[in-house]
Simulated scan of single mutants.
Amino acid sequence: MNNALKALSEAGVSVWLDDISRERLRTGNLAELMSTHNVVGVTSNPTIFDKALAEGDAYDEQVHDLAVRGVSVDEAVRLLTAYDIRWAADTLRPVYDSTDRVDGRVSLEVDPRLARETERTVAEAKALWWLVDRPNLMIKIPATAEGLPAITRVLGMGISVNVTLIFSLERYRQVMDAYLEGMELARTNGHDLSRIQSVASFFVSRVDSEVDKRLKAIGTDEAKALVGTAAVANARLAYQAYEEVFSSKEWEALAARGAAPQRPLWASTGVKDPAFEDTRYVTELVARNTVNTMPQATLDATADHGEITGNTVLGTYQAAQADFAALENAGVNLTEVFALLEEEGVTKFVDSWESLLKGLSAKLDALS
Rank of each mutant, 00 (worst) to 15 (best):
W129M: 03
W130V: 15
V154G: 01
E181A: 15
Y179P: 00
V163F: 01
A178K: 12
L180V: 12
L165K: 12
R134M: 10
P135V: 06
R171H: 05
D177M: 05
R171Y: 02
L185Q: 15
Y172L: 14
E170I: 10
L131D: 11
G147W: 06
L131P: 00
L155T: 04
E184N: 14
W129I: 00
E119L: 13
R120D: 14
T144A: 05
V161H: 07
A145K: 10
A178M: 04
L169S: 11
A125N: 03
M138T: 02
G158V: 05
A145D: 13
L185D: 02
I151M: 06
V154H: 00
E170D: 15
F167L: 13
P135A: 05
V161L: 04
S168L: 10
A127T: 09
V163L: 07
F167A: 09
N162T: 08
A125P: 07
M183H: 07
V175P: 00
R153P: 00
L131N: 02
E119Y: 08
E181T: 06
K126R: 15
E146I: 03
K126Y: 04
L165H: 10
W130Y: 13
A123N: 14
K140I: 02
K140G: 03
E181V: 02
G147R: 08
M157I: 00
T144C: 09
R173L: 11
L131S: 04
L128R: 12
T144W: 05
G156E: 08
Y179G: 01
W129D: 09
R120N: 12
S168D: 07
L155W: 13
L131K: 15
P149E: 04
I139L: 12
L180S: 02
N136A: 08
L185F: 06
I166F: 00
E146N: 11
E170A: 15
R171K: 14
I139G: 03
R153Q: 11
W130L: 14
L128I: 15
Q174Y: 03
A125F: 04
F167N: 07
G156Y: 10
M176E: 03
T164H: 02
M138C: 12
W129V: 02
V161R: 07
Y179A: 01
E184R: 15
E124V: 10
I151P: 01
A150R: 01
V122M: 05
A178N: 06
L128E: 01
Y179Q: 02
T144N: 06
P142Q: 13
E119V: 09
R171M: 13
L137A: 08
V161N: 03
T121N: 07
T144G: 06
G182M: 06
S160R: 11
M157P: 00
N136Y: 02
W130C: 01
M176Q: 08
Y172F: 13
M183E: 09
A115Y: 09
N162K: 08
A143W: 08
G147L: 09
E119M: 12
P142S: 10
